[in-house]
């Protein structure tokens, strides 16, 4: 749906970072937390398995990491492409 017409490939770089972030976002929640839970059932965590931990704790922690990582990374990309706020 995107069109990469913005200058210097800035928009393309942004889209790439967003795509990677969203893949991780989906993997830890819909993936580890729900759909892939049966695959993780062998790894036990405190009376249950890793999938349960991701559903109730891990996904939230990864969400936090994604947002801060994105902020740091994008602020750097802004400067590299000369589109940051002065």
């Amino acid at each position: 749906m995107s069109d990469n017409s913005s200058k210097n490939g800035y928009w393309a770089a942004n889209m790439r970072i967003i795509s990677i972030s969203l893949v991780i976002w989906a993997l830890v929640s819909f993936g580890f937390g729900i759909l892939l839970r049966p695959l993780l059932s062998g790894i036990s965590v405190g009376g249950t398995d890793l999938g349960f931990w991701f559903a109730q704790q891990g996904s939230i922690l990864v969400f936090l990491a994604i947002i801060f990582f994105y902020a740091i990374w994008m602020n750097k990309v802004d400067r590299e492409h000369g589109v940051d706020e002065e």
């Binding site: 972030s21 976002w25 349960f52 559903a55 996904s59 939230i60």
Partner: peptide, 18 residues
């Protein structure tokens, strides 16, 4: 019902990125 936990926090990723 872990859905509530993931759903109401995961939205902030969309908000921050999109």
């Amino acid at each position: 019902n872990s859905t509530f936990l993931m759903g109401w926090t995961g939205g902030y990723v969309l908000l921050a990125l999109l």
